[in-house]
Write a protein that binds this DNA or RNA. Structure first.
Length: 272
DNA sequence: CACCCCACCTGCGTGC
DNA sequence: TGCACGCAGGTGGGGT
């Protein structure tokens, strides 16, 4: 589900309701996520107030007034939302954060690829050390990308998916970025010119901004913390559209598997 | 170091 | 109707 725009939409939605809110209890479902904090740790959050919601790549961070950090990654199917009153018990709910105001924040995750971890004051979550530059960082420039990829041969699409270099890009936005930049997904990174990197960066930033503004992309399950679907799916130009005509030239959109992931592109527009 | 592959899960759509 | 299969927005550990 969630790439940078979806996580950012969640972050903004949660911030309006959670900043200043105090946690009174945390409860846990029976099945475990791939990585998760133990319940006694999370129960130690009782009495803490949430001071800030932050995002690094696809990680969401809840900062608490005693310095702790709750690190949440939504994996493929993770969702965060407030439980509405009188709704029936939901399946696949793994954590419930009970707030002083009566709000209940639920973490639901069908496939359980997500993570909910707790770090004490002063400890930086190790996973964050691996996270690359934010797409909107001023340090991310065509020159930086060219320097980091000089002489390397991996396809640009695989590079965009590598969050250790640039954070937050997933399969949807990698495809859309390369389409907008007119670049073939298999282009070896070492062959991309400075001008090419400029185009990629400009396309990436424009698409991410538009996706955030549209509330993210809902393919099947994504929803913001109020349960609203994102509207960017209708603006997708190639992702999931194999066989459909390219919106620019009419050539059928092609599908290719790269690094085990479906890759959608226009063979005519993205020849360079 | 650079890069690829697969495991980790459940659910849904398709085709036989 | 049922079953087998392929596919899905994520990482991360292990192999070449």
């Amino acid at each position: 589900m969630p790439e940078l725009p979806e996580v950012e939409v969640i972050r903004r939605g949660l911030a309006t309701k959670l900043v200043g809110e105090r946690i009174v209890a945390v409860s846990q479902g029976d099945k475990r996520l791939r990585r998760q904090a133990e319940l006694p740790e999370l129960e130690s959050l009782a009495g803490c107030a949430i001071t800030r919601l932050a995002r690094r790549g696809k990680y969401l961070l809840l900062r608490l007034d005693r310095g702790q950090t709750v690190l949440i990654h939504l994996g493929m199917t993770g969702r965060l939302f407030f439980q509405t009153d009188h709704c029936p018990p939901l399946p696949h709910v793994h954590f419930v954060f009970h707030c002083q105001s009566g709000h209940k924040l639920l973490y639901q995750d069908v496939r359980r690829f997500g993570q909910v971890l707790l770090y004490p004051a002063g400890v930086t979550p190790p996973a964050l050390a691996q996270v690359g530059l934010e797409p909107f960082s001023r340090r991310l420039t065509p020159e930086w990308l060219a320097a980091r990829t000089a002489g390397r041969h991996r396809p640009i699409k695989n590079l965009l998916l590598d969050g250790r270099l640039v954070a937050g890009i997933g399969n949807i936005y990698a495809a859309e970025t390369l389409f907008a930049a007119g670049m073939h997904p298999q282009t070896p990174v070492g062959q991309v010119s400075l001008k090419g990197w400029g185009k990629v960066l400009q396309s990436l930033r424009r698409i991410l901004r538009r996706a955030i503004r549209a509330g993210g992309t809902t393919i099947a399950t994504f929803a913001d913390c109020e349960g609203q679907s994102g509207l960017f799916a209708v603006q997708l130009r190639v992702y999931g559209r194999a066989g459909e005509p390219c919106p620019i030239c009419g050539t059928p959109i092609a599908r290719l598997v790269m690094a085990g992931r479906s890759t959608f592109f226009c063979p005519a527009c993205q020849s360079g």
